[in-house]
């Protein structure tokens, strides 16, 4: 472990290393962002969603399977969304129609997703790597900016371009959701369902229907998160490939205070921490002989979330009727 190829030392010196770090931050943050926005739609309407992990996993599986089967990655994205939405439907059916416990339902969804994808995964032919024509490929627009040595070009080529369409769409979604919550009648009803369902009920609007819509919309976004994992970021489905990303997304949702922009920023932060910890495996800290324990960096998102939740950082502003079964 010589100081020669110590990426941290070089990273500080080297602008390009930073850009690469940010680039992988964006790649890692994208599925988190989709999943966290999915959770936001559901939770802003009052339905706790801890089944993000399971929905991502199922949609990653369904997407990969359909891509292998049909040969069309974009069809596969739609199938992935449908798969996640069917689990959302189950969640909504249990929690809204039958007033079941939202957390128990989420736990069940996570377990079922893990079990079913693993069981079906072993039976499917596509096993293994998807070829490039079955994946969502990076977009690049070389005519926009020449590839040269300037910083602008570097930023454009390394950081901004070369992602697949879902990455850009994730950030567009943030913007759309800001407008949706601020201006649209449905957005206002959705917030009302999460803040004061009784008031919404009193104004004659069906709280159940509003919540169904938002949970299903959440499912659609979650499907994009899963599709990104198996069709974009990765090449095919691997057992338990989400490895807790759904829960990191949940953490980002809380850390971002259930607001679109806040959620985006916290996804970027958690993505950055993850990218950092990958680069720091077994690296000495400035030649001091200390190895930076990767596990401690991995812990950070969770610790930060606990601190936010406890109001030690900012003030936690969960929707008031989150997880509450209302009686009218």
């Amino acid at each position: 472990m010589a100081a020669l190829n110590n990426p941290l030392v070089t990273a500080v010196d080297n602008f390009e290393q930073w850009i690469l770090l940010l680039d992988s931050t964006i790649r890692i943050a994208t599925p988190l962002l989709f999943a966290a926005l999915a959770g936001m739609l559901s939770e802003r309407s009052g339905i706790i969603d801890i089944g993000l992990e399971g929905k991502m996993l199922v949609s990653a599986f369904a997407g990969a399977a359909w891509a292998a089967h049909s040969g069309s990655p974009w069809q596969a994205v739609l199938v992935a969304m449908a798969a996640a939405m069917s689990l959302s439907m189950l969640h909504a059916f249990a929690c809204i129609t039958h007033k079941g416990d939202q957390i128990i339902s989420g736990v069940a969804i996570n377990m079922l997703a893990l079990a079913i994808t693993a069981m079906l995964g072993q039976r499917l032919i596509y096993q293994g790597v998807l070829t490039d024509d079955l994946r969502l490929m990076p977009l690049a627009f070389p005519e926009l900016l020449p590839h040269d040595d300037t910083i602008v070009s570097l930023i454009y080529w390394q950081l901004l371009s070369g992602h697949n369409a879902l990455v850009y769409f994730a950030f567009v979604t943030v913007l759309l959701l800001v407008v949706f919550f601020k201006f649209s009648p449905l957005g206002k009803r959705l917030s009302a369902a999460g803040e004061n369902p009784l008031a919404l009920n009193r104004s004659g609007v069906s709280v159940e229907l509003t919540r169904y819509l938002s949970v299903l919309a959440g499912g659609a976004l979650c499907g994009l998160a899963g599709a990104y994992l198996s069709l974009g970021h990765g090449a095919g489905f691997v057992d338990n490939m989400t490895v807790g990303k759904g829960f990191i997304a949940l953490a980002a949702l809380i850390f971002g205070q259930w607001r679109p922009v806040g959620v985006m920023l916290s996804c970027l932060l958690f993505g950055f921490l993850d990218a950092l910890s990958i680069r720091m495996q077994g690296i000495e800290f400035f030649d001091s002989g200390y190895i930076i324990p990767v596990q401690l960096i991995e812990m950070l998102p969770y610790v930060l979330t606990v601190l936010v939740l406890a109001g030690f950082i900012g003030s936690s502003s969960a929707p008031k009727a989150l997880g509450v079964h209302d009686k009218f």
């Binding site: 009648p185 449905l186 919404l200 104004s203 609007v205």
Partner: peptide
């Protein structure tokens, strides 16, 4: 909030 809505958006 409870007006009949023609467009959700």
């Amino acid at each position: 909030l409870g007006d009949n809505i023609h467009s959700y958006f």
